[in-house]
Amino acid sequence: MSTTLVEMSEFLQKGRVKNVKELIQKALDEGIAPKTILEEGLLSGMSVVGEKFKKNEVFVPEVLIAARAMNAGTTMLKPYLVQEGVESKGTVVIGTVKGDLHDIGKNIVKMMMEGKGLNVIDLGVDVSAEQYVTAAKENDADIIACSTLLTTTMGEIKNVVDLVKAEGIRAKVMIGGAPVTQDFCDSVNADSYTPDAATAADVALSFCL
């Protein structure tokens, strides 16, 4: 792999926006294809961060600054990717369920999914079943991702699953957050539960292939 891309991935892992941008320019000047820059320079760096986060080798702040660098990079690359006709690998609608305002975990999941090249539409917090489903329809989403941190709002997940079924939309429902378990996932018939954000992103990608 090009040393420019290796360096880019390393700077991304350290959250160094300026260096990442400079290296994107360098890579473009070297004639590396934008899609290769995206995948081998940016997304690969984010994957490393995701794996380290899963193993508790890095923590929330490290993930956030890496994601900030990734976003700065993808924003810069976007016009080139559009020109090349590169499309996202799938669309996710994400949010924290109705009644719940916790959003750190949801944000991390979003960043990891973006780090897999998915297009993530963030509905924020306190999102009702209707809002998830409407957004999924409007964006022809592959996935609806629901986060919840309160036992009192876990029930909302069932409302989302039920509405998705009732409306017959194709989106898979992924769920997570501190109190959620595989048993709970089975009991509400959601499509997937994962305990951490990196695995969530892998599963999401597999749903889009």
């Binding site: 890095v58 923590f59 750190i104």
Partner: peptide, 12 residues
């Protein structure tokens, strides 16, 4: 803490 780790690096 989050559910299974510290929220920030213990060094910080």
């Amino acid at each position: 803490g989050s559910q299974n780790a510290l929220l920030i690096n213990p060094e910080l």
